[in-house]
Design a protein around this nucleic acid. Structure first.
Lengths: 190, 190
DNA sequence: TTACTTATTGGACTGAAGTCTAATATTTAT
DNA sequence: ATAAATATTAGACTTCAGTCCAATAAGTAA
């Protein structure tokens, strides 16, 4: 578990940063599928093997880069916020939809990669899908303790329904906007 | 629009059939991503170019093969069936889930291909996604005329929610079973 | 300084998707 | 029979992902 059990040349943080920066920039400029690993490495000024030393696939690199860029990428709604749960959820969804509108190509590509590559699926699910699913589950449970969402309902299940609703729209390349956020609220929350 | 405007060697129906058969068999045996176009062609006993003359990608071929295999692949529920709409929907979903349980790898791969390849997305959406979405939309509208589903609700929107629910489960490699079908019914139909 | 360890680099190599072409085969129209 | 049109075949070629390796660089421990 030590970062360095013995000596040896340290991993270049500069190379890592350059790779992540180049990956995001090129993918945004040209589209995920138009950017090859070789071009990302060249643009970052490092050898291809250096990229493979850090990430197994382009998807792993891009996921990592996205995370680093946006610590606050659609942050979880505060569970201390005293406004109505419907408002909190709507605000959260509207936020997520903005990010998906900006980064839709990338997110669709990552979801696709997770279908093709089992190892990436596991990473993506653990690092991205599940945490986000839990954000809404937690919000629904909060709403239940407040009496704003029926305690009879299964929060996990409903969170899955909500995510399914916008995944389906995303994957079929339909717009994700504030109207759709409101439609979700009124479907599941009333 | 003529099948043959003038003369010329006709397309070999036998080659088409052999390619579709080989594609399904190999994909089921080895998994979608482990089967190359070259191997499918070799197994079918035709040249690779003959495959490309018919389909642009492996995804197009497999989609076609799936359609041919199952004309009755999760057929639309009969709109003349007089049983309660909940029963019709539950039966339909259970059917779909059985097929997705058997062909989940293939379906996930096709959805992934639609994310990577815009042209295939359009084909897949028009030939597969939209018709299936309409089956549930139509069923919900029938339920509305029967007074079994509130006329206030937007059938198209709810159909999208239902599809989203099981797409999300499918793409995250969770089981699709009769319990989940019932959970969907009670969420959206009551 | 020297030995050891690990990272980086550049290049070779394989397998697959996809494009292209020349030669050949199979059909219809004359 | 011959010409015209289209399909099939085999193979060359490019690009990319992914693997592997030997030489070199950059650290740590003695």
């Amino acid at each position: 578990m030590n970062k360095e059990s013995t000596g040896g040349r340290p991993i270049s943080a500069q190379a890592s940063a350059a790779l992540k920066e180049a990956a995001l920039r090129l993918v945004r400029a040209k589209g995920y599928n138009k950017v090859s690993i070789a071009v990302i490495a060249k643009e970052a000024g490092v050898a291809r093997q250096t990229l493979y030393n850090r990430w197994n696939t382009k998807a792993d690199l891009v996921l990592d880069a996205l995370f680093e860029e946006a610590q606050n990428y659609a942050a979880a709604p505060s569970l201390n916020d005293t406004r109505d749960s419907r408002v909190l959820l709507e605000e959260f969804l509207t936020n997520v939809f903005h990010h998906l509108t900006d980064n839709g190509d990338m997110m669709r590509a990552l979801i696709a990669a997770a279908q093709i590559d089992r190892a990436f699926h596991d990473t993506f699910y653990a690092k991205f899908v599940l945490p986000r699913d839990r954000m809404i589950t937690d919000l629904l449970r909060l709403a239940q303790t407040r009496g704003e969402f029926s305690s009879d309902r299964n929060a996990e299940l409903v969170s899955g329904f909500i995510h399914g609703a916008f995944w389906y729209r995303l994957l079929n390349r339909k717009a994700l906007n504030a109207d759709f956020a409101r439609a979700i609220i009124s479907e599941f929350f009333d």
